[in-house]
């Protein structure tokens, strides 16, 4: 199914406008990774099953392995590389790092973006809301618990506008 036909597409990724020629059959995942060098977005299955490839389109998580670039012209795309701002990691990234929510780290970019979308809708999500929002992302390492705790910690820090230390129970086990 490869073809010689390429399309001119304009994509806005992490706040920057990109114009390029891409083969029509390429997915957004392939274009991000192969043409734009944004390899933080991960390839887990290319079947829409794992969420490793999740990016945000206008703030909502989208599986980039199932998305075609032409459909996304005029939309705002964000990848993990766009999370840090003004030389600082996003509070979610900091919390994931602090709590060991990234083990091998392969699933992490997808989780970070899905969680960012959640925190934009709800600044103080319940555990069930977090589970629901992250249910489409698979992780084979962590058992998810540290990921929930990191989302909660990040939410707390974002609400209070300051660094709050992780609770003892979180660090030392219950």
């Amino acid at each position: 199914m490869s073809s010689l036909s390429k399309l001119r597409v304009r994509l806005r990724v992490n706040g920057e406008e990109h114009e390029m020629l891409v083969p029509v059959e390429k997915t957004l995942l392939e274009v991000l990774r192969e043409d734009m060098g944004l390899t933080g977005t991960k390839h887990g299955c290319e079947l829409g099953e794992c969420g490793a490839c999740a990016v945000l389109v206008d703030g909502k998580p989208v599986l980039s392995c199932l998305a075609l670039p032409v459909e996304l012209e005029g939309h705002e795309i964000m990848t993990v590389e766009g999370l840090a701002a003004a030389g600082r990691m996003h509070p979610l990234q900091e919390a994931f790092a602090d709590l060991g929510a990234a083990q091998c780290g392969y699933c992490t970019p997808g989780f970070l973006l899905a969680a960012k979308s959640l925190l934009e809708q709800s600044s103080d999500p319940t555990r069930d809301e977090i589970k629901d929002a992250l249910a489409g992302n698979l992780c084979r390492c962590t058992g998810y618990i540290k990921i929930y705790e990191a989302v909660e910690l990040a939410a707390r820090r974002m609400r209070s506008g300051s660094e709050t230390a992780p609770e003892q129970a979180v660090l030392y086990g219950r």
Binding site: H43, V80, M89, A97, D98, G100, T108, L112
Partner: peptide, 20 residues
């Protein structure tokens, strides 16, 4: 926390599949 936590949460860790 992991000494390489930054790489793992920022998308900058280069896995073999990320090598071009």
């Amino acid at each position: 926390p992991r000494v390489d936590a930054y790489e793992r949460v920022s998308g900058s860790a280069v896995y073999a599949l990320d090598l071009f």
